[in-house]
């Protein structure tokens, strides 16, 4: 029983990481129908921000707290810059955008290599997050690591904040309007250009926050973005675009699947099995779990 609970918890925490990464992605993909391959490098930017801040602020707990908003701003600014420089010029060419942003991601990786060096670096986790909570004691204990719980909390907070923003604020209303019908939004007096840039800023900023979270569970390196981004894209593909609900559900389902399959087989077999499951799922729902219903044929 504790094994099942333990694996489920591991799965949920993998899901939380996936969710944090995919959240920003779902916003930018849903907003502009753009697959931003440099999203992984925005995560990396967030992680390196944490690293730099810890170097200058010695207190691990304080630097982590400061890193959250700073990483959001850093990654968000990078995203807004990318949108302004390149993506808005590639409007209606989503596949080309995918490859262009891949080029950007290559350059950012090399930049990180030149600035911080090729080897991975590590941050110290604050004291509070190094321990674990014992849920079931005894001979076969079940423990939840504090850092994992923190990431879970962060992911939930990010989802709540984002969905409240989308639902309640004027900005959120504009974003939803543009996602649902860009032309109609434009003729209603919404500056879609500005909405695009803001959405891109928020989405990329969320990647920065995900980067801060990742420093707690792994090393920071120039290629950390590429290793994780494909899983996040799969979350979006399976969850469906333009809806947060799908992203949230699928992130946790894939996380738990991954963890359970890894436990019963091996890491590599688990990856393959998850992919097979995704292809099978797309047979059933080719547009993902939740989609915006439109009358268009495409």
């Amino acid at each position: 029983m504790t094994v099942i609970l333990g694996q489920t918890f591991t799965g949920v925490s993998i899901g939380a990481v996936l969710l944090l990464i995919a959240l920003g992605l779902s916003l930018t993909f849903g907003q502009m129908n753009v697959i931003n391959m440099a999203h992984g490098e925005f995560i990396m930017a967030g992680a390196y921000t944490t690293y730099v801040l810890q170097k200058s602020v010695s207190d691990a707990g304080l630097s982590l707290l400061v890193a959250l908003p700073v990483a959001f701003l850093v990654a968000g600014a990078l995203g807004a810059l990318l949108e302004w420089l390149l993506i808005r010029r590639l409007y209606l060419r989503p596949l080309d955008t995918l490859l262009v942003t891949w080029g950007v991601s290559l350059m950012l990786q090399q930049l990180a290599r030149d600035v911080f060096g090729a080897p991975n670096v590590q941050t110290r986790a604050p004291e509070l997050l190094t321990g674990h909570i014992t849920v079931v004691g005894g001979a076969d204990p079940l423990t939840f690591a504090n850092s994992r719980l923190f990431i879970l909390t962060l992911a939930v907070a990010a989802v709540v904040a984002l969905s409240l923003t989308l639902r309640l604020t004027p900005l959120g209303r504009r974003i939803r309007g543009v996602v649902q019908n860009r032309d109609l939004a434009e003729v209603s007096g919404i500056s879609t250009e500005r909405v695009d840039r803001t959405a891109f800023f928020i989405g990329s900023g969320l990647a920065g926050v995900a980067g801060v979270a990742l420093t707690l569970v792994g090393p920071i390196g120039p290629t950390m973005g590429t290793n994780i981004i494909i899983d996040a894209f799969l979350v979006i593909v399976v969850g469906g675009i333009g809806r947060l609900r799908g992203t949230v559900i699928v992130a946790f389902v894939l996380g738990i699947m991954q963890s359970v399959l890894e436990y019963s087989t091996t890491v590599s077999v688990a990856k393959v099995l998850v992919l097979v499951a995704i292809v099978a799922f797309l047979q059933w729902r080719p547009q993902g779990l939740y989609t915006l219903r439109t009358r268009s044929l495409v």
Binding site: L90, D96, L99, G103, V104, L106, M107, R113
Partner: peptide
């Protein structure tokens, strides 16, 4: 080191 930058630029210039 320059190849990676160049390759990135190639992607951007060629496709954009």
């Amino acid at each position: 080191g320059a190849w990676t930058y160049f390759q990135g630029l190639l992607f951007i210039v060629a496709l954009a």
